[in-house]
Design a protein around this nucleic acid. Structure first.
Lengths: 103, 103
DNA sequence: TTCAAATATTAAATTTTTTTAATATTTAAT
DNA sequence: ATTAAATATTAAAAAAATTTAATATTTGAA
């Protein structure tokens, strides 16, 4: 019931959209939550714990990595993933841009 | 670099996901922004201003209405849409749940 | 070096989402 | 009553996302 008068240029909109899309999938949210819970964790632990296919896990991790939502680094045979909270923060801000001071 | 220890149950995750999906589309974001800008507006104005098909507009409006992101009321031949900021707020909180105090 | 474990990539199959295009509904005016 | 404007619904077509299943890459260990 309260106007926002958001200034939301095309670029920002694109970025917001891409970020949200990278998050808006049930499996990805589960993976993300799991990583969040564990701080830093490797792919094996992720897909064993969540009981999802290795390949699927890898593919979803890639989508989120490309969106910048998670970071990865290799240590020997293992690749460790962690959340890039700065970028998740940006997703939040994107949504926030639609918000009134109300509610 | 900062753990969150979010408590994020399955239900919340489902809800968050659905909300984000309802937002994560370029056209829907454009429509949403336009409604936000105008406070309350009818379908005609939306699709004429944004130069999108009437049918497409209607369908995207429906998706957002079902997700609760926007509200509608009819006044004669016109249907007026407005943003449900409370629900958008919930989308923001959903994303926020992944956030550390960092950043 | 060969082998196996961990992860990534790929292509095809499947599923879901989106668009197109046509038709239906609702309401106000004639 | 008919008609026209505003919006919604629907079904089929098209496009995009996801899964499956197989293969490739990387690395450490035997």
């Amino acid at each position: 019931m309260n106007k926002t008068k958001v200034v939301f240029n095309a670029e920002k909109l694109e970025t917001s959209c891409e970020l949200m899309r990278a998050l808006a999938h049930p499996l990805r949210l589960r993976i993300l939550e799991f990583i969040d819970r564990n701080g830093t964790i490797n792919v094996n632990k992720i897909y064993h714990s969540l009981k999802i296919e290795q390949s699927i896990t890898s593919q979803h991790l890639k989508i989120m990595r490309l969106a910048g939502v998670i970071d990865a680094y290799r240590e020997g045979k293992f690749v460790h993933y962690s959340i890039n909270y700065d970028v998740v923060k940006r997703a939040e801000i994107a949504v926030n841009n639609f918000l009134a001071k109300s509610a």
